[in-house]
């Protein structure tokens, strides 16, 4: 029935197309050499041409990212709950966490290489280290901002602290947790690519570094596109998961448009 053109649904495609068109147009009009900034058509051609190495390296990056991300989810959730549970642990770990988060993760890669050699492990660990913090902070925030009225409901029934955690703390924190996953997954990609481009013989990071060394600039960009696609897909998955799990928390007009 509804044959009206749905602007909101079309917008992502239109804006992406417009972006590519402007890019393509500027490169041609301004006569920018392809080894400086290749036009999207050339990037696409390269992407198809080199699909095999792009594919295998993407898979490698995806797996290091996912392993790091999974670790971050597990530890982040656990630590967030522990921190939210006890004020003492919160106070005790806070400076450590802030300090740790302030360290640029690039600086840690050499240490990881020293301990674990190059390749898969440092990439996964860098992804873990970089994506772990937002999960902890969000889970702890979720617990810290529980309405005392809701707590009172359970306390008035004689509930233990563990009961309150199970019946209110955890469900109430889930929207924060799933929200943080969207941030964490993108950061995890940053981490693994950083590590790959410093210390790995595989992965998109490494592919781009090598392409750059050989002045195959279109291939560098093709690598970027591959990363972007992986990032979008994973982000989208997390967003779907978030909506599935915490629909009750997403009722405002802001959440829907």
């Amino acid at each position: 029935m509804n044959r009206r053109f749905d602007m909101v649904r079309a917008a992502p495609w239109l804006f992406t197309l417009a972006f590519l068109a402007i890019w393509e147009g500027s490169v041609h009009i301004l006569k920018i050499p392809p080894f400086f900034l290749p036009p999207p058509t050339l990037v696409a051609k390269t992407f198809v041409e080199f699909w095999r190495p792009i594919y295998t390296n993407s898979l490698f990056t995806l797996s290091t990212t996912m392993v790091g991300f999974a670790l971050a989810v597990g530890f982040g959730l656990l630590l967030g709950l522990v921190i939210g549970w006890s004020r003492t642990i919160y106070a005790g770990t806070y400076p450590l966490m802030i300090g740790f988060n302030a360290i640029p993760k690039v600086a840690i890669v050499p240490i990881l290489v020293l301990w674990f050699g190059i390749g898969f492990i440092p990439a996964a660990l860098t992804a873990f280290l970089i994506s772990f913090f937002p999960i902890v902070v969000n889970v702890a925030t979720g617990l810290a901002t529980i309405e005392p009225e809701l707590e009172d409901v359970l306390k008035a029934l004689g509930a233990s602290k563990l009961d309150i955690m199970r019946k209110i703390g955890i469900p109430r924190t889930l929207p924060y947790f799933f929200g943080s996953l969207k941030i964490a997954i993108t950061l995890a990609f940053v981490g693994s690519v950083i590590s790959e481009s410093i210390a790995s013989n595989h992965g998109i990071g490494n592919l781009m570094l090598q392409a750059q060394a050989q002045f195959q600039v279109p291939l560098v960009f093709a690598g970027l596109v591959a990363l972007a696609i992986e990032g979008i897909v994973m982000y989208w998955l997390m967003a779907v998961l978030e909506r599935r799990m915490t629909g009750w928390a997403q009722r405002s007009g802001f959440a829907q448009t």
């Binding site: 309405e147 009225e149 809701l150 009172d152 409901v153 008035a156 019946k167 209110i168 469900p171 109430r172 889930l174 915490t246 009750w248 928390a249």
Partner: peptide, 14 residues
Amino acid sequence: AGMAFQSPTLLPWR
């Protein structure tokens, strides 16, 4: 005790 508070305080995820 069973308590009904001034505001309904229902859990929105249930």
